[in-house]
Design a protein around this nucleic acid. Structure first.
Lengths: 303, 303
DNA sequence: CCAGTCGGCGAAAATATCTTTCAAAGGTGA
DNA sequence: TCACCTTTGAAAGATATTTTCGCCGACTGG
């Protein structure tokens, strides 16, 4: 038989369209129809069985298999697999179009993609822009701290609470304040071995700068987590950790990306401290995990 | 409601590893073996027939098919197709090498890089695994809601508050509860046009399931944001939004990635609602921005 | 113009693969 | 320990793929 020739090529990865063109002249009419259909719509054809594709091209199963062979695959099954791969490839190829801003009439799927992309970008930017020396210094201070006060209002307040929860979990004495009065009142108590952390995206939120100033003046080690390292908050900060600022838009307020960025910084602080205090942190973490387990209803399909 | 779940997701494109992780806990031992094998080597498995894969995992064909079903495919054939697609995908996008776990003695710079990478991964997985139909339905319900109650305790409580803040900002009537008693007490008030949202990573946190159940029984539209869509919480949820689960480690508790994932979902909800209610949301957003501006100290290094 | 030959083609048989069923093994709680 | 439920794989049943086989039309030489 003449198809010895067909075995010449390996499975052939993605250059299917090219192969079809090259081989087309040596194909019979029916086979050409199959090959063209397949090249034109890999994704659609990947969903079809031999019979389905035969019908769609107005040919028979045998012809489809013959075509697959000619294209270099052992049989239709493998052609179909390759087709699926090709489809996935094309799919990803047209993804980068999500860099645009989120519009009012974007379909929900686009919103998800764009948001995820933006937040990923924010994370990358933050990681790249974070000063590891400052971070290390802050970690050292926290690890040795007698008491830790954290200030944050609005969206940053949630980040403050997040850090608070985490630090508690590894056995540190921490407090988070969203109430400026309470914050200042408590800041007065701080001493030199203590640490105060202010979280503010704008770098100029009076409500958190004020307690940080008090802490600073009391001799505590002060840390600022801010998107504006040149802002007023830095005046009273021994260590400044910079969060990144993504472009914002009407539908995507700054709070969203700043939060992502702040949380990454806070997580880094947490892990850093957990490393340094591993001896005491590990059992504390395990213990809090244990305690939680009992709050989950025992039943349910968990195994 | 929970059994329908298997068909919940469309073929699922690339987030297979994430899906495996999400669903692993609800799998039997044998199925886990199959799922892990498949996740670890998509390309290799794509070349195998049911029988082959069954042999390789030391299980039976039936188990392989069952696993494929659980992962959301109609049968093994389709899983295999998806695998081929995934393989092609991986082929092109060679992943970076920072995938290692965070160790106790990692320098701080590595911690930053790994954390950022992991969270990016979590975002990608979440976005890929999010059912846009369910999301759209949840958005519709929220947009038309008379009142919105949000339940979350622990780390998820912060996410609940985040959503709460955002919804308030666009003029919706929302409440976040971390106190289970208050939550239930208020859930009783809900009526059919209202919406209740439960946020729980484990899917089995009694403290948030209880109020959701009450809301469900009162006829409110209920939404669950959970990493375990097969967990008890889904019983009382009209719409289930699945968050992804990243591998965790001693130093990197699950709470960290689940939070990232939950926040993305919550952001998507928010943007979705903001789009639908644009007429009223835009001025409300602008107004809240205005109001905040006054809380920031006017310029530069004042004081 | 006709008979003979050849390649292309598809129907259907043969085979491989996938899916479902069912009963036994293993585990769990009373 | 026993009854009950879950998990699991063997084998039957259903589909899909591959192969076989012969028809059909086209071309060729008489």
């Amino acid at each position: 038989m003449k198809e010895i020739f067909a075995g010449e090529a390996p499975p052939a990865p993605a250059a299917l369209a090219a192969k079809v063109r090259t081989l087309a002249p040596s194909m019979t009419r029916s086979m050409q129809r199959v090959a063209e259909t397949v090249a034109a719509d890999p994704a659609g054809c990947a969903a079809l069985t031999v019979t389905g594709l035969a019908e769609r091209t107005g040919t028979s199963e045998a012809t489809v298999v013959r075509t697959a062979r000619l294209l270099g695959y052992p049989g239709y099954r493998d052609l179909r697999l390759a087709l699926a791969g090709l489809a996935a490839h094309q799919q990803s190829g047209r993804a980068p179009a999500v860099t645009a801003d989120i519009a009012v009439d974007d379909p929900i799927a686009d919103v998800v993609a764009k948001l995820a992309y933006d937040e990923q970008q924010t994370l990358a930017d933050t990681a790249a822009g974070l000063d590891t020396v400052q971070l290390g210094a802050a970690v050292s201070a926290l690890s040795a701290a007698g008491r830790i006060d954290i200030y944050g209002v609005g969206a940053s307040g949630l980040v403050a609470q997040d850090l608070h929860q985490k630090l508690l979990r590894i056995g540190l004495i921490a407090h988070a304040f969203s109430d400026p009065h309470l914050a200042v009142t408590n800041a007065v108590q701080l001493r030199s071995k203590d640490v105060a952390i202010a979280i503010t995206h704008s770098g100029s939120t009076g409500d958190v700068i004020e307690p940080l100033r008090v802490a600073f003046e009391r001799g505590a080690t002060t840390v600022a987590i801010t998107g504006r390292p040149d802002g007023p908050v830095s005046q009273y900060a021994d260590h400044v950790l910079t969060t990144s600022t993504a472009r914002e838009s009407e539908l995507r307020p700054a709070a969203m990306s700043s939060r992502t960025s702040q949380l990454l910084v806070v997580d880094c602080l947490f892990i850093g401290v957990a490393q340094r205090t591993y001896e005491s942190a590990a059992p504390a973490l395990a213990a809090s995990y244990e305690a939680l387990a009992h709050r989950h209803s025992p039943r349910g399909s968990q195994r």
